[in-house]
Design a protein around this nucleic acid. Sequence first.
DNA 1: TTTGTTGCAAAACGTTTGCAGCCTC
DNA 2: GAGGCTGCAAACGTTTTGCAACAAA
Lengths: 160, 160
Amino acid sequence: MNTNPYDIDKISNFFNEYLMEHGLRKTTERKTILEHICRIQGHFDVDMLHERLENDNFHVSKASIYNTIELLMNACLVVRHQFSTKVVRYELKSAAMGHHHVICCCCGAVKEIRNDKIAQFVKDLKIAKFTQEYYSMYIYGMCSKCKYRLMNDRKARTEK
Amino acid sequence: MNTNPYDIDKISNFFNEYLMEHGLRKTTERKTILEHICRIQGHFDVDMLHERLENDNFHVSKASIYNTIELLMNACLVVRHQFSTKVVRYELKSAAMGHHHVICCCCGAVKEIRNDKIAQFVKDLKIAKFTQEYYSMYIYGMCSKCKYRLMNDRKARTEK
DNA sequence: TTTGTTGCAAAACGTTTGCAGCCTC
DNA sequence: GAGGCTGCAAACGTTTTGCAACAAA
């Protein structure tokens, strides 16, 4: 039974409930930002989200986008990935749960892999004094392109 | 057979080899920074490392610390953890391999847990066109303190 | 001697803040 | 109507950069 991780109605309903329960206000900005996030269907960053909203003729300040993303992270609806010093990406939690990230230390390339067995392991973990919501796993190493390039570099240096 | 993850000699030797193989120079700064990292035995950040070096009467600029850390990450000797927007911590890879991180979304508290079963499983994963070096796993959720606090907040609002 | 590395200070960048005005409740 | 939320611009803090001086190979 695979449910759609980008289901706008379901996610919006959850968010509305969260806002109500926490005594926070339901604003047009919050609603619209979340809807756009659902439509992106994948990783996004603040600039990209801002651009899309503007293109859709919806003006919001970046400050509000930052505020809303923070709120969504507290509500465990959005996950933040910091792939390197300068690369930050966000993602809907419901979408993030299905995959792990494989990152090349050399070129920074990121790819996604699925592994349901690990997901199950983690889900079943009992952690003292802690209620888990989700997890992120990042596997670092070297992609075959970089490995090949480095090998050639080394060879060139030795022959010099 | 548990080997010491902070073994200065072993780590320094590996680093020297790495420098040589990549045509980079062995400088006093690089050597000293790595030695201090080994002595810290745990998470560290740039400020903390800089402070320790100064206290030890070894003057290095922060720029050089950043450079060296970047180099050590490329050499897969050091791992970077970004626990939240403003909290960055580094750690020796050899030390990081033994544990996972559990992070409270609410207060940002970080604790470490071990799980050898998951570690072994990930290590044995075969990923196409990729050579894995290490992985990081972050489990997010809510610690019991925050859960309790939120519960009381909610109750207070309802009773108001 | 060559050229990679360092220190310093200035710049860059993403993110946060303060405050007046607006809009939800 | 009260006060939470927004937009704007200025402030912030970490990381990066450019360049002259230095030192490893």
